[in-house]
Design a protein around this nucleic acid. Structure first.
Lengths: 189, 189
DNA sequence: TAAATTATACAACATCCGTTGTTTATACAA
DNA sequence: TTGTATAAACAACGGATGTTGTATAATTTA
């Protein structure tokens, strides 16, 4: 599950770093839809054909980018190395809300392709995390369905929040929404 | 909200019908990603430029297609003209599961663009439906958050079911999963 | 250090895309 | 029925895509 840090040819590491870096910069200027592979390779000072050696297409690049960004948020809060508590669940929901909000404001939002890839990555990571948490609590109960419901609910709430016209205070929103998620996980406590 | 049946130029109606029809047929042979606008217009016997008069791109076409297909499922079960009961909620979850399963098996599944658009359409329709249901029950309570959680949970469960390697009996799955959705709506009863 | 492996640069390709301008055919209303 | 409006056909464009083949440069291994 962890991204195994294989010994990589330094050229590969360098090239991938250049691509990711160029992409990060471009996202600050343009919407994802408006970014072409050419843009990325020009800014990265990389040949276009080289790009395709490392990524299937620009969507795979975004996928990788989101994976890194969100994993960083999770790890910086040590959520990946703790266990379930109502408070940690609250922090998780907050994290997802803030991440989506940041991504939505920083990177000029572009509907078509951007959001679904964000969703897939974030939702998966939340799902995996919940599975670990629940598995620790009661190893005899099946966690799949509860983790699925909770992961989708959490992302849905965060998405709802980040889309809201006039957003309420985040804390207030989380206070109101959290019980709806927590109620499904109580059976494991 | 309802797709207003405007009086349309018969040429328009004919062309859109041809496009939707060609697209339906193509989905049975190819994955969505593999279908090009050219494919559609060739099969529809339509000029490619004409296509762009009616749809922004092939994703907009899929969007429209899903909207029609799923709305049909909802309406054929009269879910849009009834009110909340635990049993209707059950039917709704079943409907989404069956729809996703059908789509997944009929149309050769293609990850990248197909699923997200299905999700957006289906989830929105479920959300709107739940808002109506909940609004009827207790007009004083705010429905947004509950409807959001429930809509995401329902779609997530259906997605989980349709992705499962060895799928359990649908009825069994729904029996197990339904309470996790229903518990969030009980405050309205 | 020398030979091998492998990444990148470069150029060229067919394909699809979305758009534009013009002409022809169809629908509708006076 | 005739005039007007508008949809569709057609052709052509610039641009991005993804792929391929060859040459060069860097890294690793022996």
């Amino acid at each position: 599950m962890l991204p195994i840090e294989e010994k990589l040819d330094p050229r590969v590491k360098r090239t991938r770093g250049l691509i990711l870096g160029a992409f990060t910069n471009l996202l600050a200027e343009k919407s994802f839809d408006a970014i072409s592979v050419q843009d990325v390779t020009e800014k990265a000072q990389i040949n276009r054909a080289t790009f395709y050696k490392h990524f299937l297409d620009k969507y795979a690049l975004l996928d990788r980018w989101v994976e890194q960004q969100f994993r960083q948020e999770i790890e910086s809060r040590v959520l990946d190395a703790c266990h379930y508590t109502p408070d940690n669940l609250r922090i998780l929901l907050l994290t997802v809300c803030e991440f989506l909000f940041k991504v939505r404001t920083d990177c000029m939002q572009s509907q078509r392709q951007f959001e679904p890839l964000i969703e897939k990555q974030v939702k998966n990571q939340v799902y995996e995390l919940l599975n670990v948490w629940l598995g620790k609590m009661n190893p005899h109960l099946s966690t799949e369905i509860s983790a699925t419901v909770a992961a989708w609910a959490i992302y849905g709430l965060a998405s709802h929040y980040s889309h809201a016209k006039k957003l309420p205070a985040l804390e207030k929103f989380v206070d109101e929404a959290l019980p709806l998620v927590a109620v499904n996980l109580e059976q494991f406590a």
